[in-house]
Amino acid sequence: MLTASDTAALQQLARDELPGLYGLARHLAGPNEAEDLVQEALLRACESFGSLREHRAGARWLRVILTNVWRDRVRKETRTAREVPVDDVEAFSLYRVLVDEDPYPYSDTLHLDFLGAFTDGDVDTVLLRLPPRYRAPLVLRYVEGFATRQIAQLLELPLGTVLSQLHRGRKLFERAMWDYADECGFVARRDAARSV
């Protein structure tokens, strides 16, 4: 049971960190489950607030709890759900696809122009298209700034598995960026240009 002052401190911490916590929850679990995930994480934080020694570390502590709650949920689901097959993306290079397809023929800054076509919301949409097992390490590493070893501990996975998921996640992200740009008309494909 928390004291009144601990509860007040946790509430203040939660208010301060709410946008970041919700952002992480959304990236881990998707928009439909994010709010519920934040609530469950906050309830779990109430149970273990006494274990937080350094209140300055509270932001990171809340993110660790939220990630643990998500990990436990995913484990329960994957006991019954079948693995989503991911086709081979090892050889995909967005950099080279852009060179080969040359979607902006008059540009000297092809790759920057491509990235410049994406709003933050577009990038978010692309990220949410990735399978959760690849999206989670990517978000924890590059959005939240956790070290690879910390991610392995958080997700209770061997380091080699996390490294492999990160690599594949990056490749899937590159390919998803290209597919999204194609769907949204950010790029003019060569074959389409030839047919005009």
Binding site: A4, Q11, A34, E35, L42, V123, D124, L138, V143, M177
Partner: peptide
């Protein structure tokens, strides 16, 4: 591309969700 990934969280908390979660935090006591 790594920099682009870092920006992916900007502005993701809708007002209605913020309101509900703020109420939830108020009730944590």
């Amino acid at each position: 591309l790594r920099g682009v990934l870092r920006t992916a969280t900007a502005g993701q908390l809708p007002d209605d969700v913020r309101g509900r979660l703020a109420g939830f935090i108020d009730d944590l006591d």
